[in-house]
């Protein structure tokens, strides 16, 4: 599993190199093409995840829904199924994280970010993921929260005890450590199918999206300053000794890097041609600041991957530093936006 996480992390870090564009139109087209490419991968990975959960559910169903009987009869198969599901989940999630910084910043697409990745359950007052989840047994979960981090991640990694059906020794080491359990097959399959559906819906709307300057600026100025919140989630996660159910599959820093890379890509491809046209120094300052921000996240993640355990205080300081850079970027981008008459949808 550790190897898998490491591989997935590396994939998202390498895949984030932004592309310089000669003109604004070219850059906007590049951003859209990039997003659609990864959206297609997201759909494909989600289908793979759905297939894996279907296989897992089939084993459970073959034993009449008796998890204990299924484990007794087909323990190794279930263990492999759980492992496959987790690896598929990571691959699916990372595809989305690669484009989240773009999707979540575009006003017409932001609802998908809430449904797939960032939304709250209906019990919260704001940022609710506006969808209901229908499960294979016909039950409906009203406004259950985001598919990745509220539902499937806590489900697959056992940090949601309500849906852990049976504690088992998944890795066969004679012990039952954290996350070693069989989870609710009904919820797993329903949520995976929903991931396929909503990833496809995003692809449709992304295809219809007409890239434009206002959306590009809005995406950068709304998403970049969220970096501090993500560091806060990292600080509260189990990676730093916290108790949050979400962000247990991989470090939140991997997501942070994906999201900020999306912001950087949007800037470098679609906005830099506009800014550089009349203020090359400002463009250079923003470009450098983005590099600094990504470097800070990358270096912190590299230290974590090397085994360094960060204190809460250190996490706060790093988050503060990242937020400071992000706010400088946004201030400069907004100054450019004002100069070019851009309307920001806040």
């Amino acid at each position: 599993m550790r190897k898998l996480i490491s591989f997935a992390s590396t994939a998202i870090f390498v895949g984030a190199t932004p592309v310089w564009a000669l003109t604004e139109a070219e850059g906007l087209a590049q951003v859209k093409a990039f997003t659609l490419e990864h959206n297609a991968d997201l759909v494909a990975q989600a289908q793979g995840l759905r297939d894996a959960t279907a296989a897992y559910s089939a084993i459970i169903a073959a034993h009449g829904g008796d998890y204990s009987a299924a484990w007794t009869a087909e323990g190794p198969a279930l263990s492999d199924a759980v492992s496959t599901i987790r690896s598929r989940w990571l691959a699916t999630s990372n595809q989305y994280e690669t484009i989240e910084g773009i999707v979540a910043g575009i006003p017409s697409l932001v609802k998908y970010d809430l449904i797939l990745d960032a939304g709250n359950p209906g019990t919260e007052a704001e940022d609710v993921a506006e969808f209901d989840l229908t499960l294979p047994d016909g039950s409906v979960l009203k406004r259950p929260g985001s598919l990745f981090h509220t539902i499937t991640e806590p489900l697959f990694w056992g940090s949601d005890p309500a849906h852990a059906m049976l504690i088992v020794d998944l890795d066969g080491d004679g012990q039952t450590g954290a996350g070693e359990m069989l989870f609710d097959a009904n919820l797993a399959l329903g949520a995976s199918e929903a991931l396929v559906f909503w990833a496809g819906a995003l692809e449709s709307d992304m295809t219809a999206w007409e890239p434009n300057r206002n959306d590009a600026f809005t995406a950068v100025v709304t998403m970049t300053p969220t970096v501090g919140d993500y560091f806060g989630e990292w600080k509260d996660s189990q990676f730093l000794g916290g108790s949050e159910a979400a962000f247990v599959a991989q470090s939140r820093l991997v997501d942070v890097h994906g999201i900020m890379s999306g912001c950087q890509r949007m800037y470098v491809s679609a906005i830099a041609p506009v800014v550089a046209s009349d203020d090359p120094a400002l463009d250079a300052a923003i470009t450098t600041a983005f590099q600094d921000l990504l470097a800070l996240v990358s270096e912190t993640r590299a230290r974590e991957e090397a085994g360094e355990i960060f204190s809460v205080e250190e996490a706060d300081a790093l988050g503060g530093e990242a937020q400071d850079i992000a706010e400088r970027i946004v201030a400069q981008v907004l100054q450019a936006a004002a100069r070019h008459g851009v309307e920001i949808e806040s």
């Binding site: 300053p225 400071d324 706010e327 946004v330 201030a331």
Partner: peptide, 8 residues
Amino acid sequence: NSLVSVPP
């Protein structure tokens, strides 16, 4: 301000 255009 809702859009912060002043650097920290």
